[in-house]
Amino acid sequence: MLATPQTIAIMKQRYGAHCAGSFQPLEFGIELVDGPVTITLFPAGHILGSAQVRLAYQGRVAVVTGDYKTHADSTAQNFELVPCDLLVTEATFGLPVFQHPDPKQEISRLLASVQAQPERCHVIGAYALGKAQRVIRLIREAGHDAPIFLHGAQEKLCAYYAGQGVDLGNLQKALDRDKASFPGHIVIAPPSALRDRWSRRLPDPVICQASGWMTIKQRAKQSGVELPLVISDHADWNELTDTITASGADTIWVTHGREDALVHWCRSRGLQAEPLYMQGREEDAGE
């Protein structure tokens, strides 16, 4: 398993120390020569430690973005643009309807709602890896320093991020609390817990979810979300198309999302583009 040290640490924590046969850590920007191919990792800006892979072979350069975003995020290394000939890009939000707003604006809507409804608690559905920490950081950066309550599934990774120097402020276990301590506070839980028995302990919660899918109101409604927060750790349409243009690649392979639209966009600009359909990742896979 070749990955950044942080990715390896996160994998071991989530899936166990022996989840891969062997691990080979590779720091960002260090060239690894493997026969005729030179491999280099560059920050993808998706979550802490996430990488793009640059492969150089006989003067041609291919870059596999993996999941990425270009917007600044204080819980991850900033995305670096890597010039290349062949770009393999993700396409989670590969439709022009996805134009993510500034996350600061979303957090200020959240905090306004917390203030306007002090008798309720706000529970935010956010994936335990990356999204939860980003949302907490954004809340802290907006000046909200009250304790934030965590679902058990969020604790380990938050502790790991804190150990890596990401200051998440005062975090407490939601489990230990009685009902009376929740009103006026923010709780963070995995999206699956929002409609589970777990959330019944919360008094009349405002269900929030932090995700790029929240752009679409009917999606938010389908998931029973009352306050959608459009905060994404994937590139939106403009980031995807800007990155393709800026990479200088003449060939684009599109995968993991809405391949058709991005392929169409590339071709209409004279780029060679193909969809890479992969089994089991058809639509709306996690974010």
Binding site: L95, P96, V97, Q218, R258, D260, A261, H264, W265, S268
Partner: peptide
């Protein structure tokens, strides 16, 4: 782009 519009409409 009309095609991108139609794909988006179908999705949304």
């Amino acid at each position: 782009d009309p095609e991108l519009f139609l794909m988006s409409y179908d999705y949304v």
